[in-house]
């Protein structure tokens, strides 16, 4: 049996909000260590890897491994009915045909209970070896989100160029072009505002702006985003959860 109680529904609300526009169907794998998901978008360009460790829950138990096949849009409809500050408990039997979600108001005696039908989902599972990266950028997630949104107004591609101590986001469109350069920066008082660039080899990669604009839906989850890049390889965008992560692997674009 699975029983996982979040102190606040807001964490799962944000996670589902970040995923629902990229993937429609997901298997949520529940083990004693927590809940994990690997899901790939229909175009096979973006892969989502989610880990909500048991430590993210107020209380967590899962006696046997359980797979919850969930339709994200339906899950999102139910999740939106709960308040962000509600306690949220996920409950499933050992061989479940439904996931129960219980929202409890902390101040009043209000309990809302929902049941979501499960689905059998046959999904490709990709084997992601330990990847080596030539560059790692840590930056404020809100700043990254603004850059992705701004650059998408110009072109459907976004080029990321990293040299020693700066990252250049470059967009070449039909009616014009634009770029934003950010440099390494340490804010000792507000560390979440800092930009850190760790570079082994310079990087010049191009990505689909559409996918980046799906990834930045994770911005409310974490004040910083970590971007890991390697020449001619998929990039990794990571948002840390209190205990766990939401990662996106994005395949690059290449010259025709």
């Amino acid at each position: 049996m699975l029983e996982g109680k979040f102190d606040e529904a807001s964490l799962l609300k944000k996670v589902i909000d970040a995923m629902k526009d990229s993937v429609k169907l997901c298997n949520f794998n529940c083990t004693e260590n927590g809940i994990s998901v690997q899901a790939i978008d229909d175009s096979r360009v973006l892969l989502i890897s989610l880990l909500i460790e048991a430590g993210s829950f107020e209380d967590y138990r899962c006696d046997r491994n359980i797979v919850l096949g969930l339709e994200m849009e339906s899950l999102n409809k139910i999740i939106k009915n709960g308040n962000a500050s509600d306690m949220l408990t996920l409950v499933a039997e050992d061989s479940p045909d439904a996931l129960n979600l219980i929202f409890e108001d902390k101040r009043r005696d209000r309990i809302a209970e929902y049941s979501l039908k499960l689905m059998d989902i046959d999904q490709d599972f990709l084997k992601i070896e330990d990847m080596k990266f030539d560059a790692v950028v840590n930056m404020p997630s809100a700043e990254f989100a603004k850059i992705c949104r701004d650059m998408k107004t110009l072109s459907e591609s976004l080029q990321i160029i990293i040299t020693k101590d700066s990252v250049k986001f470059n967009s070449e469109g039909d009616f014009g072009s634009g770029s934003v350069v950010i440099k390494s920066f340490t804010d000792l008082e507000k560390t979440e505002e800092s930009v850190r660039i760790t570079l082994e080899k310079p990087i010049n990669l191009t990505f689909g702006a559409k996918y980046l604009n799906d990834i930045i839906k994770s911005t409310p989850l974490a004040s910083q985003v970590t971007i890991k890049l390697c020449d001619k390889q998929p990039a990794l965008f990571e948002y840390q959860l209190p205990s766990g992560y939401l990662r996106f692997y994005l395949a690059p674009k290449f010259e025709d």
């Binding site: 175009s43 998929p234 395949a251």
Partner: peptide, 14 residues
């Protein structure tokens, strides 16, 4: 503006 690559060409299926 460039050819979109596919994740299946980088990662194998399990």
């Amino acid at each position: 503006s460039g050819q979109q690559s596919n994740l299946l060409s980088f990662f194998g299926k399990k």
